[in-house]
Design a protein around this nucleic acid. Structure first.
Length: 491
RNA sequence: GUCCCCAUCGUCUAGCCUGGCCUAGGACGCCGGCCUUUCAAGCCGGCAACACGGGUUCGAAUCCCGUUGGGGACACCA
């Protein structure tokens, strides 16, 4: 009976899975590419759980496969974590720096008769696996080297763990509840490859144990790995941690989220103009809920996060909703903060000089003026460009439509009245403007549009008087005059 | 094929553990209206779901069994 009482504690139903000791969790990505959305969510749940219980969050890079990892990928993971603000307390540890530890523990198992040398070659194994598949049999290792009792292999050999074959392994998962596996389905897994490197299922166990991990929170694609790992913890004499298997994130076709579904790297969302806190907010709601609440501050998340409300079924990633969340953060966020995040985008749009010429305060006001019209920082750039520089880029079609000779007199009147005012006062200028509209026997919109085009170069903009206020008296008058020139010249 | 997980509006979800308060609530999106100097935002309203079949019970979205469907795992990858 491979059943460890330590593993048996419910996170659902009975109690709330309140940890008794000090919580230690980890996020252990493999550096095969960028940090994707699913990875961020796993990291986030770990981080939240750690912060919620004043525990420790550890970052560990699973790089035991020399073939596939790259330093760039490690850097990308670090950058991604930093961008979303998931700071770790220990690490990043790299498994490649811990090889002695794995070998040492593997040999310990061998000496205790809990592991054995296997001289089957990868090719042979592959062939047998194919045969088994063709016959419709279980594709597990037949254990033929188990009884050979090889003490000192002469050639290439891998070390296999003697998995229990009787009884059952029970895990009481924080999100899935009680899951029972028949030990008969367990394979004698290779723990040390013939090249001396440990395999994943072994290195995780050694690391999780040695790092004192109390809760292993990971994607539910690892659920079936758990009954293979639990016996290893026990064979090594370690305490078995508690497990929590998070449901997967699916693409719109209900298949596991992948590159096929468009952007899956978190940093791609940064580049698309998403705020990191919006991404976090969206991701946490994908699989966790707190009543009807949609928006949470980071502090609220830490206070409210619990496994009791983690969904056990997978969720479809929906960019529309994430966009909405982003929009909310842009609209409700602290203007100065949004402005700071906007700067790199402005610089990239070629406004480096212009940006350095304005104050953070003015930039924040600009953000306030345009923010209810934008859903991303990228969109915000286009809304914000007309307000930099003396002149404005004029949209030809708009100018042609609204800056006509017939409009020139009314525009001139507006300018004359404005010029009579030595200082700009929003309400006052608005009153003046409306007076002109009335005197000219026009409708508000008739005069507002030409003015809008003269001021911003476009037919769509924030409220006219907000625009004037932001532009300031001088620039307002300059642009208005240029608009009149343009109107007169228009044939 | 074998094992494991999952199943409420198109999507994210509340409710399920501790059956009645559910003629199933919220959010995104979509449709319509209001507001309006443009574009937005905002506000109001609408469409839309308990996968199916059995049971248990006075009563089931909630408990049990089965079916179907979806996902995952079965490597000297992680």
């Amino acid at each position: 009976m491979f059943r460890d009482s330590d593993a048996v504690e419910s996170g659902r139903g009975a109690g709330k899975g309140e940890p008794s000791g000090k919580v230690r969790v980890r996020f252990a990505p493999s550096p095969t590419g960028y940090l994707h959305i699913g990875g961020v969510r796993t990291a986030l749940f770990n981080w939240l759980f750690a912060r919620r219980h004043q525990g420790t969050f550890i970052l560990r890079i699973e790089d035991t496969d020399q073939e596939r990892f790259t330093d760039e990928a490690i850097q990308a993971i670090l950058d991604g974590m930093k961008w979303v603000g998931l700071d770790w307390d220990e690490g990043p540890f790299r498994q490649t720096g811990r090889m002695d530890l794995y070998r040492e523990h593997a040999m310990k198992l061998f000496e205790q008769g809990k592991a054995y040398w296997c001289v089957c070659t990868p090719d042979e194994l592959e062939t047998r696996r194919k045969e088994a598949l063709a016959k419709g049999l279980t594709q597990k290792y037949d254990g033929r080297c188990r009884a050979k009792g090889i003490t000192k292999p002469t050639g290439e050999a891998a070390l296999r763990f003697k998995a229990p074959q009787e009884g059952e392994t029970v895990i009481d998962d924080l999100v899935k509840g009680r899951v029972v596996f028949d030990n008969a389905v367990l394979d004698d897994l290779i723990i040390l490859r013939s090249n001396g490197y440990p395999t994943y299922n072994f290195s995780v166990v050694v690391d999780d144990a040695l790092m004192g991990i109390t809760h292993v929170i990971r994607g539910d694609d690892h659920l079936t790995n758990t009954p293979r790992q639990v016996p290893m913890f026990q064979a090594l004499g370690f305490t078995v941690p508690k497990f929590g298997h998070l449901p997967m994130i699916l693409g719109s076709d209900k298949a596991r989220l992948s590159k096929r579904h468009g952007a899956t790297s978190v940093l791609a969302y940064r580049d698309m103009g998403y705020l990191p806190e919006a991404v976090v907010n969206y991701l946490v709601r994908l699989g966790w809920s707190h009543g009807d609440q949609e928006l949470f501050t980071r502090q609220e998340l830490i206070e409210k996060f619990d496994f009791k409300h983690v969904q056990s079924s997978s969720a479809v990633f929906n960019q529309e909703k994430m966009l909405w969340v982003n929009e909310q953060y842009i609209k409700q966020g602290e203007p100065g903060h949004v402005a700071r995040l906007l700067i790199p985008f402005l610089e990239q749009a070629g406004l480096k000089q212009e940006v350095s010429a304005v104050s953070p305060d003015w930039l924040a006001k600009l953000v306030v003026m345009v923010r209810e019209r934008t859903k991303t920082l990228v969109e915000m750039v286009t809304w914000v460009t007309p307000y930099f520089g003396q002149d404005v880029a004029m949209d030809e079609a708009s100018a042609k439509k609204f800056l006509t000779p017939a409009m020139a007199p009314a525009l001139a009147k507006v300018v004359a009245r404005f010029e009579a005012e030595p200082a700009f006062h929003k309400e006052q200028w608005e009153t003046i403007f409306k007076q002109v509209v009335e005197e000219q026997g026009m409708k508000m919109g008739q005069l507002a549009q030409p003015v809008r085009v003269a001021l911003t170069g476009r037919t769509a903009s924030p409220g006219l008087f907000e625009v004037m206020e932001l532009l300031g008296r001088e620039r307002t008058l300059i642009r208005l005059k240029k608009g009149i020139e343009r109107a007169k010249a228009s044939a």
